[in-house]
Write a protein that binds this DNA or RNA. Sequence first.
DNA 1: AATGAATGAGACTTCATTCAT
DNA 2: GATGAATGAAGTCTCATTCAT
Lengths: 242, 242, 242, 242
Amino acid sequence: MSVKATTKSPKTYHLHRDRQRRRILDAARKLFDERGIDRTTMAEVIAASGVRASTLYEYFSRKDEIVWAIFGDMLAEDAESVKKRLEGATTGLAKITALLQHMADQLSTEPTKVRFMAQFDAMYAREWPVERMLTLEGELNDQGFKVFGTLIREGIADGSLRADLDTELTLHAVINAVIGAQRRLASLGSKVEVEYGQPIHRLFQETIRIFLLGLSATKLPGRTRRSSRAAARTSTTRKRTP
Amino acid sequence: MSVKATTKSPKTYHLHRDRQRRRILDAARKLFDERGIDRTTMAEVIAASGVRASTLYEYFSRKDEIVWAIFGDMLAEDAESVKKRLEGATTGLAKITALLQHMADQLSTEPTKVRFMAQFDAMYAREWPVERMLTLEGELNDQGFKVFGTLIREGIADGSLRADLDTELTLHAVINAVIGAQRRLASLGSKVEVEYGQPIHRLFQETIRIFLLGLSATKLPGRTRRSSRAAARTSTTRKRTP
Amino acid sequence: MSVKATTKSPKTYHLHRDRQRRRILDAARKLFDERGIDRTTMAEVIAASGVRASTLYEYFSRKDEIVWAIFGDMLAEDAESVKKRLEGATTGLAKITALLQHMADQLSTEPTKVRFMAQFDAMYAREWPVERMLTLEGELNDQGFKVFGTLIREGIADGSLRADLDTELTLHAVINAVIGAQRRLASLGSKVEVEYGQPIHRLFQETIRIFLLGLSATKLPGRTRRSSRAAARTSTTRKRTP
Amino acid sequence: MSVKATTKSPKTYHLHRDRQRRRILDAARKLFDERGIDRTTMAEVIAASGVRASTLYEYFSRKDEIVWAIFGDMLAEDAESVKKRLEGATTGLAKITALLQHMADQLSTEPTKVRFMAQFDAMYAREWPVERMLTLEGELNDQGFKVFGTLIREGIADGSLRADLDTELTLHAVINAVIGAQRRLASLGSKVEVEYGQPIHRLFQETIRIFLLGLSATKLPGRTRRSSRAAARTSTTRKRTP
DNA sequence: AATGAATGAGACTTCATTCAT
DNA sequence: GATGAATGAAGTCTCATTCAT
């Protein structure tokens, strides 16, 4: 058997390492969502992932690092996906719409991820170094948050956005609010539904709609008949839910 | 003489009891803000409040109960304050503006409170009973969340709001987003400022402005010269920060 | 009201005191049986009895005292009842039979009491002063344990008991075993029934029967047809259960 | 080289683990006997065993588990010892005598064990699952409690026991009483001696003697001269204590 | 790289009981 | 005599993490 160990190719080795890492991360991700990050103990992660305590520490030297690793993975996934979305759009408004719609889709299809982010914000807010955050949604785009200014400028230029928007302020504010809304809906989930009597995804769509109405140059007539998804993505018109 | 003993005590007792309760709650509130709710231990609350451990447990038998008590107090304070604000406004739009402006003021003057709420949402979201939440901002008004519908209806009727808003949906969505935005800004504080290069209060004002633009019936000309506070409360016009 | 207090007759006062005492003792007795003496906390007794902690301590200055008070009450009840039983019997054997039958009845009608005694023995065994125990079953009779010797002597004399019994030993041994058997059955209750496949009361009757067979002078024919209760009390013949 | 590491560990580990386990169990056993199970705190066990608190919890996660472990060990010891005893005896009566004599010896040589059992019964009576108890003295023999019936049947067949005994009842009842007597004597120890004026071991022998007299087919003449130990084991004749 | 064992440092509570009024 | 409040002293158990092999 020691022979085997000796001949093991570096490839096999890395594969194994990655698989182990995955197991740990996946177990943690699940637990963090079910019981909350802080409420989850290392012992639970250890039990759920099936590795021994001491082995786990070979991969992650502190609980924090697991959290950050998950966080990093999520960011990477996201950046990719957003970039694609933006490519399809032409006007400034269309691009912003695409951005927001991305978040709506995320809320529907990956509530777990959104919930994790919400927790991350709340718990790590006080202790993380700002630089990390700059990496955060900044990785969405090479220019970091400067994209926001660019998009506004572009929209004003092509006439799709109101002329009185602030390139350094408006989109930052809107994105912050949309993130806040999205995470709150994901965290409270069915509770908001009971409370407000509306499914969270509808609430989120309405949030987007109002924002886009506020940003777009011309007041489009409300309550049109158009309700296709594609339409919703580039217009601020009310989209009726089926 | 027994009369004296009997009549004197109850008052004294209650006064004392309330004072002790306050001490504990205040100490906890401070710690929760400084170190986070979950990161705060009972031992710390005990040390900070100056009561003995066993005495504290006479008042609150679990950390949870302290959290809930603080939460309850905050709600009560809020409900009061909001009610007053609404009384001054006349049109639907003005009322909504007042509501949002209340949150802006709160963010500026009581960031601690907002931060607590943010933590509360994120950490206790999964374990609280929905009923509790119904009390929450529901205590804003006797009608609960039905006010939202009423305000929209009122605004449409008086011509201050767009006609295509949904009485059962729009304001719920907007308020949720505004709460989300407010809490996120309060939690991340200086981190957002560094990141976005804008003071959080300006970001929040812009959030409100865009929302109101999206809600209001006529598109007011942007970038007006008016920038008085009073004006901001009833208009959706950009308010320049001083 | 202070007037009332002044005119309160000593009678009323005592009545009140006794009632309070009862409430406490009854609550404790119930809890001790349900949860075990040591597992029962003062807080529970306080809650169950409805008096305040400080009031309770006016009546019993330690938990121990509650236990001893209950114990004392039980002994008093017992002594009385045993005395009556013995009066009816004539021969030595009849008297011993009456004594054992008393314990059988107690097991059936007051299992709670027996269980309490079992706990008392087990828990207080190591810490009580022997003198207290001498009061114990010693109060059965003015002569204390000397009755045991007397009964044996009487039975040998009247020919109902074997001649080779030891006046200073035999009945002591038998009573000890019978108490042990009774308490064990009461404590384990349904568990023994499941285990042995026999109702505890039948097991206890059989225990008595064998003992009496061992004590009585002549070997009575077993399995007779007589099965009346009265018969069982003076004979060692097997009593068939219905 | 990896071979060496792999093959050396398991053995060493187990040896070490067992030694630690022993240390804890032995310390606990001693304390339980000295101060009572419930009166013994984990802190005491920790101090006495010399391991750190957290280490102890790696072995036993609750006090209960220590209690059960001790209990299990005792049962195992017992089952063994009883089996041997029974092998030597021929008639039914001889076997029962051997069984009871085993308990007498146990009372003399291992009062600690008997006292532990007494406590166990009393304290765990209300909370243990019946199945556990079925394992209990059931492990005495492969057939569980059915041995009792077998022994009686055997004794009736070979003429050593009375013919009117109940195979499903008699021995169960007797054993229960003998266990009760044994444990009571062990628990109360010197207190009974003071009270009854007899050494506990003599009291227990007398208990057995009477029982055997009750069970055996022919009434042997009492007060014989034979007093050897061997004799006592197969006869119901009074054995004089030295 | 993996692992069994260990562990320091506390966390959170509970309790029986005592006072001052 | 009744009561509200207080409290010292433990008690049980958890946890993230480290080490030696």
